[in-house]
Design a protein around this nucleic acid. Structure first.
Lengths: 138, 138
DNA sequence: CATGAAAGCATAGGTTT
DNA sequence: AAACCTATGCTTTCATG
């Protein structure tokens, strides 16, 4: 379903998702049309979900990033899950195992906005916030 | 330094990083060359860091994702930070504030591999693992 | 999966505002 | 300075084998 050639293609796209099919074809010694067909197939299958740009958030005026764990109040989980999409600050949200059931990654301009967000999240459950200091690796 | 037009460009690239400059130009009513210049400038400034593909990890044979918090043993932090890049399972790593000082996101084939990883990480400090059940939103 | 041809796109340099 | 125009070479796309 996804063979070694497909994996090579994915590896290249992980490095540079804007590479042209022609250049990608040269990298892996295949014709451009074959590469295109494989990529299309993976898009159709859902193996490839999206192509995104990664930005320097500090340069865009967002000085704070944090992880927030929430222990949602009993019976409120469904409501919380629905509400989460309405927060533009939340860049990632996951249900997780353990004593706390929601894990958020948030991107925020400054301390004041973080405080406001936490005030709102407190209606959902008990929160536990970890500020991100630096990214490791890359 | 980054104006409203640049922000529009970034928004489009967040949706689809493989869009052509020509199409992007049509979306925001600018000439292709102007769009290209702006993108180039943002790449040079470091505002745009990278273009990446997002994949369905389950379809690629990785059934488990987890967050792992580590309270690193005293004096070992520098060593841990250097070692982290050598784990292919670790897809994201951050230094964080709080009682625990490292936050990892890991991508793993199955429980056996998770166990192996946790055994290795236990040399770094006390670990706290949260399995990811589902992604919320999107 | 490769080839080939038509249409569309990227890119550089010069021009305009 | 920032956006545009234009020409050349590449890339994408799709039909055909």
């Amino acid at each position: 379903m996804v063979d070694d050639i497909d994996k090579k293609i994915l590896q290249e796209l992980k490095d540079n998702a804007r590479i042209s099919f022609a250049n990608l074809a040269r990298e892996i010694n295949l014709s451009p049309s074959a590469v295109r067909e494989r990529v299309q197939k993976m898009e159709d299958l859902g193996v490839i979900q999206n192509y995104v740009v990664q930005t320097d958030n500090k340069m865009l005026g967002y000085d704070l990033e944090a992880f927030i764990l929430i222990k949602v109040f009993p019976g409120k989980l469904k409501h919380v899950i629905q509400s989460i999409t309405e927060f533009p600050e939340i860049t990632e949200a996951h249900r997780i195992t353990g004593n706390q059931n929601i894990h958020l990654k948030v991107l925020i301009k400054d301390q004041i906005h973080l405080q406001k967000l936490l005030d709102q999240l407190m209606d959902f459950g008990d929160t536990n916030t970890f500020l991100i200091l630096t990214r490791i690796g890359d």
